[in-house]
Design a protein around this nucleic acid. Structure first.
Length: 302
RNA sequence: GCCUCUGUAGCUCAGUUGGUAGAGCAAUGGACUGAAAAUCCAUGUGUCAGCGGUUCAACUCCGCUUGGAGGCA
C-alpha cells in the first residue's frame, strides 16, 4: 500500500456524503473540502453530514471556525496537508470530499507564497474603490500589474481589490508571485460524481425544500440572535443570506426559497465548470458505489 | 349576448408614424492563485395565436376564427 489520498468531488446535491460514508470500509478518514461546512452552527444550510454520520467515520475541517471568522484557501491547504500527513502516519487513507473548486486547486496545483495581507489594507482598498470607483482603481492596476489586469475583467471587483491589496502590502505586482507555486507531493486518486443537469437541478430543488422542513429558517434566526450579521463571512452563504432577507422583510418566504434554489443551481453549474478543468478524474454516476470502490481498491492496493 | 383590453423567446413584458424584432429573468458555455456557496465574462430565430385581405412591403392597418382578462346586461 502506497501513500495515496482519494479525492471525491462533485457538484452540490450530487450524493457525495452518502458515498463517502460507504468508503469507511477502506479504513479511512474524511477531510471536508468545503468552504461552508467549516463554519459552526451552520449545519442545515451547508448540508453537513448528520451527527450519526459524523460519528460513523472520523471527519475533519467541519465546524471549526465561528461564522464571523475568516477561513481561506491558504488555511485550507495548510490544514489539509497537515491532516493528510497525520493520517499517513496512522496508516489511514485520507478521503478529501467536497465541492470547493479553489480548495481542490490549492491542494492539487499549489498556491504561490503570498504574505497574508492585514485586514486594514483590505478595508483601505475597499474604501478606495468606493470613493474613486472601480474603473479608476482598475486603471491603477493596469499601471502596476498589466499582466494581471489583462487577465481579469474590469468589472471583477473582488480580483481587482485582491491584486491591489497585495501590491500595497508587498510593493510587488500580484502576478509576480505566480512564477513559483510550491506544492506537496501527494498522490491523488480523483473520483468525480456527476449526473444529467436536469436531474441535478431536480435534486437541488428537493434538497432546498427539505432544508426548509428541517429548520433552515430557525437555524438562520438563531445565527442572527447570536449576533452574526448578514455580511459575516459565514453568512455569505447560499441559503442563509436569502433567509435573512426574508426575516428582515425584504422578500417573502416563497421568494426566498425560490432564490435559494436558483442560486444553488447557478452554483452547481459553476462547480461543474471548475471540475471539468481538473484532469485525471474518474467520473461516475452517483449510484455507482460498487464501481467506485472497485477502482479505488485497484489503485491503492495494487 | 354586447362592449373593452389582450395573445411577441422557456417566463414577465418592450416594440416608436407599416421596412420580417429586443430587454430583464431563466438556460447554456466560460474565467478563476488565501473572500470562492465569492467575484466576473460571453451567448438572444422566435410559424410575433391562426387564416384571409389591403400594400412593393404587415408584429404593426382591416376582417374572420380561436385562447385569456375585465366590464355591462
Amino acid at each position: 500500500m502506497n501513500n495515496y489520498s482519494v479525492i471525491i468531488l462533485g457538484p452540490t446535491a450530487s450524493g457525495k456524503t452518502a458515498l463517502s460514508l460507504e468508503l469507511a470500509s477502506f479504513g479511512g478518514e474524511i477531510i471536508s473540502v468545503d468552504s461552508r461546512q467549516v463554519y459552526k452552527y451552520m449545519d442545515i444550510g451547508t448540508a453537513k453530514p448528520s451527527k450519526e454520520e459524523l460519528l460513523k467515520v472520523p471527519h475533519h475541517l467541519i465546524s471549526i471556525v465561528e461564522p464571523d471568522e475568516k477561513f481561506t484557501a491558504g488555511l485550507f491547504k495548510r490544514e489539509s496537508e497537515k491532516l493528510i500527513n497525520a493520517l499517513y502516519q496512522k496508516n489511514k487513507i485520507p478521503f478529501l470530499v467536497g465541492g470547493t473548486g479553489l480548495y481542490f486547486n490549492s491542494i492539487l496545483y499549489g498556491l504561490s507564497s503570498i504574505p497574508v495581507v492585514p485586514n486594514e489594507i483590505r478595508s483601505f482598498v475597499d474604501r478606495k474603490i468606493e470613493l474613486r470607483g472601480l474603473e479608476r482603481v482598475y486603471n491603477i492596476l493596469e499601471k502596476i500589474d498589466s499582466t494581471y489586469a489583462n487577465k481579469i475583467h474590469k468589472n471583477d471587483k473582488q480580483r481587482i481589490s485582491r491584486a491591489i491589496e497585495v501590491f500595497y502590502f508587498t510593493k510587488k505586482p500580484f502576478s509576480s508571485f505566480f512564477n513559483e507555486r510550491p506544492n506537496n507531493n501527494f498522490q491523488f486518486i480523483k473520483i468525480g460524481i456527476n449526473m444529467e443537469r436536469e436531474l441535478l437541478y431536480k435534486r437541488v430543488d428537493l434538497r432546498v425544500d427539505q432544508m426548509i422542513k428541517d429548520g433552515l429558517i430557525d437555524e438562520t434566526e438563531n445565527l442572527l440572535k447570536m449576533g452574526y450579521k448578514k455580511d459575516s463571512p459565514g453568512m455569505k452563504t447560499i441559503g442563509y443570506s436569502e433567509i435573512v432577507d426574508y426575516l428582515e422583510n425584504r422578500t417573502s418566504k416563497d421568494e426566498a426559497i425560490e432564490l435559494i434554489k436558483r442560486n444553488t443551481r447557478h452554483y452547481a453549474k459553476r462547480q461543474v465548470t471548475w471540475f471539468k478543468k481538473i484532469d485525471g478524474i474518474y467520473w461516475f454516476n452517483s449510484d455507482e458505489h460498487e464501481k467506485i470502490k472497485k477502482i479505488i481498491n485497484e489503485k491503492i492496493f495494487f
